[in-house]
Computed example of a mutant assay.
Amino acid sequence: MSRKRSSIDLGALQTEEGMSGSGRDEAIYRNLYAAIVENHLEPGTKLPEDTLAEAFGVSRTSIRKVLQRLAYERLVDIRMNRGATVAQPTVKEARDIFAARRIVECGVIPQAVAKATPANLDALRDIVRREHEAEGRGDRREAIYLSGEFHVALARVADNEAVADFLAGLVSRSSLVIATYGAPMAGSCRHSEHHDVLDLIASGDVEGARAWMERHLKDVERSVVLLEEEPSALDLRKVLDEVARRHRGER
């Protein structure tokens, strides 16, 4: 699914008298999707059907269908007798999302390099420019959104919609990971790094671009505190010897 940005204006939907039922459901979906992916609704936020139905001026049945669609995309959790909430990825789910992104994004690099044109590289540079502006004014939501938009747009250069749409879903779920675990500005890529991969693609350096993507996504994952260092094997004798030396020095 394309990550087209939409404004969050619940009231506007109530004025669209001529909109069909399916059209209105799609509009509600787009608004809730944007609210979640852009982190206006934080992970764990309750999404009561009656409140949403009143806000959008529709039946609870319409809201239920939209929530079920978002649950299928794993952006919403629905639990018996507890209703719907914005999804909160576990650490394992978060790691799985980034591992899947590495497989997809590294795998699509050869096709992106082969099909890159000056026009679509310029379009990608424009996203990087807007990302840089968002970073400059401290707009975390916008910077993270544009960072994800860059990655999806880069995949679309390969001209494989199935891959790009699958990645768009992973990037959307990444926004929940960043909102759940990230520190301020964590998860937004440094714009200068995005310039680096565009230079590699423009020069036709497939292996360089693929290595960049692998490293870059691991760095993003680390920025949201998901990678834990493997505990080193404990050298019990060394620890006890160190303690003994310290105590002898104190006497």
Score class of each variant (00 low, 15 high):
His194Ile: 03
Ser188Lys: 12
Val177His: 05
Cys189Leu: 04
Gly204Pro: 03
Gly208Met: 01
Arg215Gln: 12
His195Asp: 13
Glu207Arg: 10
Lys218Leu: 05
Leu217Gln: 13
Cys189Arg: 10
His195Met: 06
Ile201Ser: 06
Ala179Ile: 05
Tyr181Leu: 03
Asp219Met: 01
Leu217Tyr: 10
Asp196Asn: 05
Ser203Trp: 04
Val220Leu: 13
Val171Pro: 00
Tyr181Lys: 02
Ser175Gln: 15
Asp196Pro: 00
Gly187Trp: 00
Val177Trp: 00
Gly187Val: 06
Leu176Met: 10
Leu200Arg: 15
Ala186Ile: 08
Leu176Asp: 13
Leu200Ala: 01
Val171Met: 02
Ser188Ala: 14
Arg210Tyr: 02
Val177Ser: 12
Ala209Ser: 10
Arg190Ser: 09
Gly208Pro: 11
His216Arg: 12
Val206Tyr: 14
Tyr181Met: 04
Gly208Cys: 00
Ala211His: 12
Gly187Met: 07
Ile178His: 03
Ser172Pro: 01
Ile201Ala: 04
Gly187Lys: 02
His216Ile: 02
Asp196His: 01
Ser175Val: 02
Asp199Glu: 11
Ala211Pro: 10
Gly208Ile: 05
His194Ala: 03
Ala183Ile: 03
Glu193Pro: 03
Ser175Trp: 13
Ala183Gly: 03
Pro184Thr: 08
Ser203Val: 09
Ala202Cys: 01
Ser172His: 06
Met185His: 12
Ser188Leu: 07
Leu198Lys: 02
Val220Ile: 07
Gly204His: 06
Gly204Trp: 00
Pro184Ala: 07
Ser172Leu: 02
Val220Trp: 00
Arg210Asn: 12
Met185Ala: 11
Gly204Arg: 13
Ile178Lys: 05
Met213Cys: 00
